[in-house]
């Protein structure tokens, strides 16, 4: 379980996240939506340790992440993918996954290097990586250089790297961005297949169709604050959300700005809420 407990993040005077609290439960997919600048990415970056937290707590199963250095956050059971792919381009696909399984203790790394221990463990790690690649349909590319794969495959490798260590919390930062329709559909199936009682999944996405079709809970952010949360149906019919998106001139401007920034088209369809379409 991932918990945001009265989390605030300020960049100078600006509050990018303003006293946000919510829980992400295991076994389901929780989507975080909102126009650009709503603070979704900031939230992810804080949880993953890339940004410091100004005040409040972020917890994974009771462990306070904001006190940990970044690599320990991974050990605490949180892993993520990136909005812009960040693979280890020069390494093979399977090595990319092995990075996430490197033993945390430096002592054991050294012992391992001298061949004193850990051979069986190394074998097992490799086997785990191959199993995950198999599961995501990447087995054929295991020995290829990660940087040489097609964009969609790289996105999948990133997903594989994020899940190979069997995290308790998985943050997916725009996994469908830049994917075509077929790839998005494939990704959707993989994400759905990942659902397990031990894994809390957070999905940040602009593809509203994808969100509406796979999210169990949707959290709506606007201007650094939590606007609403509920099931897809609840969010669609939530008057406050509609107000925020439709009623307030400011919010509309935000959406328009977001749309321009992403070179997306914004369309409003009756009954479906808001959709962002990737060109």
């Amino acid at each position: 379980m991932l918990t945001f407990d009265h989390v605030t993040k300020r960049f100078g005077e600006l509050a990018a996240i303003d006293d946000v609290s919510f829980e992400v439960k295991p076994g389901i997919i929780t989507a975080v939506i909102g126009p650009n600048g709503a603070g979704k990415s900031t939230l992810v970056n804080m949880a993953a340790g890339s940004y410091g937290v100004t005040s409040g707590r972020i917890l994974v199963d009771g462990v306070e992440l904001q006190k940990l250095p970044k690599h320990r956050i991974a050990h605490a059971g949180l892993s993520r993918t990136y909005q812009n792919i960040r693979l280890f381009d020069g390494m093979s696909v399977v090595k990319n996954l092995e990075v996430a399984l490197v033993p945390p203790r430096v002592g054991s790394l050294i012992a391992n290097t001298f061949g004193l221990s850990g051979r069986a463990a190394a074998e097992e790690r490799r086997a785990r990586c191959h199993a995950v690649l198999e599961r995501l349909g990447l087995a054929a590319h295991a020995e290829r250089q990660a940087g040489s794969l097609a964009y969609g495959q790289q996105k999948l490798v990133e997903l594989a790297r994020a899940i190979v260590a069997e995290p308790r919390v998985l943050l997916l930062d725009e996994p469908a961005a830049g994917l075509n329709h077929g790839e998005t559909e494939q990704l959707k199936q993989h994400i759905l297949a990942l659902r397990s009682p031990d894994l809390a999944m957070v999905l940040i996405e602009h593809d509203m169709k994808l969100i509406m079709s796979i999210s169990d809970i949707i959290v709506v952010m606007n201007r650094g604050q939590l606007l609403a949360q509920g099931t897809a149906a609840e969010i669609r019919s939530n008057t406050e959300v509609q107000e925020a998106y439709l009623g307030q001139p400011g919010a509309i401007k935000d959406i328009e700005a977001a749309a321009r920034g992403r070179r997306n088209r914004v369309r409003l369809r009756e009954g479906e809420g808001l959709t962002w379409h990737q060109p």
């Binding site: 993953a48 890339s50 690599h71 892993s79 993520r80 990136y82 990075v99 996430a100 490197v102 945390p104």
Partner: peptide, 9 residues
């Protein structure tokens, strides 16, 4: 940075 995100000290 990504290495740290993967848990490497």
């Amino acid at each position: 940075d990504a290495a740290r995100g993967c848990g490497i000290n």
